[in-house]
């Protein structure tokens, strides 16, 4: 056995290990990139459609059932009629909307940020699906909220990168997302957003005009993150939706 304590051996070992590990990871990342990108695209389409009520929930009231990946492409072109990009206070129709990277845009100033808007139609009703990106307790959270002409929420999906399982991670559970349906983002003609509120004495969320949904137990900061994300994002979309309808 060679002397494993020598400096030469140590450096040699380190070099070989870096090359091997780096090689494996780089090869893996490049090789799997197309498949991963495709999965991410399907997921995005599933989420947008889910927010506007195109999903396979049926009679199931407990879990989230997206359109299956093999059908999602087709359904997406069927339901999403127009896509727009809002930038610098101006709105323009654009096919690039789907490719906008929300994470990158969220780091830019609001005036130069590209903000995508998806307009869909289902059963003769128009839906404005708004993507959003914010911060939870540990890492990024994001979601899609679908509004109708009256600025009432018709559906919402949320997701997260690393919230605590069982606590903050519950933002992607059905019971939390369903609470948003029917809530208006306006209050007496003024913009109010939607607040994830603790102890609002309305756990079943029967009052729909209070701009509040019930918070998740034990996940205050994630809930506040959702509130902040919704408030700041929807605000910049309202004038444009008003113009479009």
């Amino acid at each position: 056995m060679a002397n494993t304590d020598g400096n030469g051996y140590t450096i040699g070992f380190a070099t070989i290990m870096v090359i091997v590990v780096g090689g494996i990871l780089a090869a893996l990342a490049t090789g799997l990139k197309p498949a991963i990108k495709e999965n991410e695209r399907f997921e995005k389409q599933q989420n947008i459609l889910y927010a506007m009520g195109v999903n396979e929930n049926g009679d199931d009231t407990g879990s989230v059932n997206f359109i299956p990946t093999d059908k999602v492409e087709e359904e997406f072109t069927k339901y999403i009629k127009e896509t727009y990009i809002i930038q610098g206070g101006k709105i323009a129709q654009s096919d690039e909307a789907f490719k906008v990277d929300m994470k990158k845009e969220s780091k830019l100033a609001k005036s130069t940020r590209k903000m995508p808007l998806y307009v869909g139609e289902r059963d003769g009703k128009k839906f404005y699906v708004i993507p959003m990106y914010g911060k939870g307790l540990w890492d990024a959270i994001w979601g899609y909220v679908a509004l109708d002409d009256q600025l009432v929420v018709q559906g919402a999906t949320f997701d997260h990168k690393g919230e605590t399982p069982g606590l903050g991670a519950n933002i992607k559970e059905r019971y939390f997302m369903d609470d948003f349906i029917g809530e208006s983002i306006m209050n007496n003609g003024k913009y109010a957003g939607i607040t994830v509120a603790k102890g609002n004495n309305d756990p079943k969320n029967l009052t729909k005009d209070d701009n509040e949904v019930d918070a998740m137990a034990g996940a205050t900061i994630t809930g506040d993150g959702v509130t902040a994300m919704i408030k700041s994002t929807l605000k910049s979309y309202i004038p444009h939706i008003q113009k479009l309808k």
Partner: peptide, 21 residues
């Protein structure tokens, strides 16, 4: 990381469940 990347490519919904871990 290898497991995570492979799952992301071939079993995306499972990887979503596990990515937090």
């Amino acid at each position: 990381i290898i497991v995570d990347q492979v799952l992301k490519a071939y079993a995306y919904s499972l990887s979503k469940e596990l990515s937090v871990f």
